[in-house]
Structures are given as structure tokens and as C-alpha cells.
């Protein structure tokens, strides 16, 4: 069987967590495992990718991969596929990797499965639909390599202790039209990362405006090591930036405890948080779907419960 490749997204700060998760899974599929890392940070990421199961890392540090999202990487990857003929390529479900996989599909004519939650072999992957209420196993056919986009945090990254050989990759970009990045803007973030926090406190439309998010932040600070997130309704309303969004089009979180305040529990929100070990939902509507998946379903007004909880947490911390 041909190799399994992981398209590993990298930045100068290191490989994305999802790359390490995918390599951990790839190791179990009984084939050679390689990673493809394109863009600034690629060479530096080789050691860590190797330590998670890649025996080969095809790498190139050119900024063009970050500056021309999608197209440069898709064409370079296509040339590399022609040389090495992998059977399967795993990508994380991110905007950038989707651009690469989508364009690559046009070049290879191979199948592309999105939103996978597990990979069972080179021709079979699993997904969950309808908010995770149904599990679907899908057979993948057509020309190799099959392309599978996997939801982040579907697997837990575990080091293999291995090392990888670096194979330099030639940049392949055909002439023609392309879009290029001319500026980058980062929104200031504070506290622990949403994906890594032990406790996530998320606010929804029920907060009614941007100010009550400060109340959630106070609870997060009282707990310590907690992060604040949001539903898409709160993000679309402009109350908090997109980087707070949890769900299908936002982040996937798997904290020890997830506290949802003023969130109804739409399917698209639930897919991003149902992996939490414990779920607490605070909602004044006893029929809100989020209450049905909660371990502790609190029917009440978040404006009373959240501050009282913050008080209680502070009290316990000092006693």
C-alpha cells in the first residue's frame, strides 16, 4: 500500500497542533507516514513532525506558500504526488488546508471527504452528521491519493519518539492569476488558548451585548486557566471577535468542563463542544436543546447565576 501523508500546517512558531494529531492517527494505518510542510517554519518543524510519526518530511520554507494561500501549495503538492504516489493525504479542516485540498482535487480528480472525525483505513473514513447524532462510515473510491479533511481534535497527539528525514521540495507554481496577502492583522489575545484551556466558558446571544462578556471573563479569572468563547450569534453580532467562535465554522474544544451561558445549543455549535468531558448549560428556556446534552442543566437567568458562581468560586479559593 502507498504511503499516508499528512499535510502539516506550519508557522515560524511551530507546527499546528492538528498536524501532530493527524500524524498520531496516520501511524496506526499500517503504511509509511510522511508529512508535507510548506511555508515559513517548515524546516524547523521537521523534528517535531518526526517525533510524532513522520519518517519523511517534504519541506520548503518559501514565504510564497503563506502569501498565496491555497494555489502555491496545491500545485507543489500535486507535483510531489506525481513523484511519490501516496495512497491517502490527511488535512486538518482549516480555511487554509481546505483551500489546498480543494484546489488539489481539481488537479488529481481524486475523491475528497470533508469533516471526517476518524480515519479507518486508506479507503474508509468516518464522519458525524446532524450534530453528531448519526455516525457515517464512508467508502472512498477513485484515483489515489484520496483526500480527507479531518476535524481538529479528533485524535490526541502522542509522540512516537521517531525522527524524520528532510526531503527538500521544489516550488511549483504555474503562471496565471493569483491573489496575494499584503497585510496581516492579529487580534490581541489574552489568557489561555481556547483549544487548550481546561475550562471553557462560552457566551451566546443570551448575553445581549458585548459588555456581559466581561462577566464571563471574571468567572474565567476566578477559576484560573479558563478561557472565554462564544457562539456564532455573538460573533456575528460583533460582540467578540471570530477567534472566540466555537462550532462547525469555529474552533473545536474538548475541555474538562464547558460552561454555556445563553447559548441555545444549535447543531452547528454543539459539534464544536460536545467532546467536553462535562457540560454545564445555563439557559432560562427549559426547552433549549443545550440543556438536553448538559451534565448540569441550569434553568435560570445567567445574569444572576454567573456572578453568584464567580463569588462562590472566589470564596472556595480563599477557604
Amino acid at each position: 500500500m502507498g504511503a499516508v501523508w499528512v499535510y502539516a500546517e506550519v508557522t515560524p512558531e511551530g507546527p499546528q497542533a492538528a498536524a501532530l494529531e493527524l500524524l498520531t492517527k496516520a501511524r496506526t494505518l499500517g503504511a509509511d507516514v510522511a508529512a508535507v510542510a510548506l511555508g515559513p517554519g517548515a524546516s524547523e518543524a521537521v523534528a517535531e513532525l518526526g517525533a510524532h510519526g513522520a519518517t519523511t518530511v517534504y519541506a520548503n520554507d518559501e514565504p510564497v506558500f503563506a502569501d498565496q494561500p491555497g494555489r502555491a501549495a496545491a500545485h507543489t503538492l500535486h507535483a510531489l504526488i506525481g513523484q511519490h504516489r501516496p495512497a491517502l493525504i490527511l488535512f486538518a479542516s482549516t480555511y487554509d488546508a481546505r483551500d489546498v485540498a480543494g484546489r488539489l482535487q481539481a488537479l488529481t480528480g481524486s475523491t475528497l471527504m470533508a469533516n471526517a472525525t476518524d480515519v479507518e483505513g486508506p479507503t474508509r473514513a468516518r464522519t458525524e452528521i446532524f450534530g453528531g447524532t448519526k455516525v457515517v462510515d464512508v467508502d472512498l473510491a477513485g484515483p489515489e491519493p484520496r483526500l480527507v479533511l479531518v476535524r481538529p481534535r479528533s485524535f490526541v497527539a502522542e509522540p512516537s519518539g521517531g525522527t524524520a528525514t528532510t526531503v527538500p521540495v521544489e516550488v511549483v507554481i504555474p503562471g496565471g492569476a493569483t491573489a496575494s496577502v499584503i497585510e496581516r492583522h492579529a487580534e490581541a489575545a489574552s489568557g489561555p488558548k481556547l483549544e487548550e484551556a481546561n475550562v471553557v466558558i462560552a457566551g451566546g446571544r443570551g448575553l445581549g451585548g458585548p459588555e456581559p462578556f466581561a462577566m464571563l471573563q471574571e468567572l474565567a479569572t476566578a477559576i484560573g486557566g479558563a478561557a472565554v468563547g462564544a457562539s456564532r450569534a455573538a460573533v456575528d453580532a460583533g460582540w467578540v471577535p471570530y477567534s472566540f467562535q466555537i462550532g462547525q465554522t469555529g474552533k473545536t474544544v474538548k475541555p474538562e468542563i464547558y460552561i454555556a451561558a445563553g447559548i441555545s445549543g444549535a447543531l452547528q455549535h454543539v459539534v464544536g463542544m460536545k467532546g467536553a468531558k462535562r457540560i454545564v448549560a445555563i439557559n432560562k428556556d427549559a426547552d433549549a436543546p443545550i440543556l438536553r446534552i448538559a451534565d448540569i442543566a441550569v434553568i435560570g437567568d445567567l445574569f444572576q447565576i454567573v456572578p453568584a458562581l464567580t463569588e462562590e468560586v472566589r470564596k472556595r479559593a480563599t477557604s
Partner: peptide, 24 residues
């Protein structure tokens, strides 16, 4: 199914859960 709570009880139960999970 989880446990449904309201009012004063809710605060104590959530705080207990946080303590059980050793996050506070």
C-alpha cells in the same frame, strides 16, 4: 441525561463539579 437544577442549588452544584475536576 444530566441533572436539572435551578436557583440557589445550581451555584453549589457547578462549584462542586469544578472542584471534582480539580480546576479550582
Amino acid at each position: 441525561g444530566g441533572e436539572i437544577v435551578s436557583g440557589e442549588d445550581a451555584i453549589g452544584r457547578i462549584a462542586d463539579l469544578l472542584a471534582e475536576a480539580k480546576v479550582i
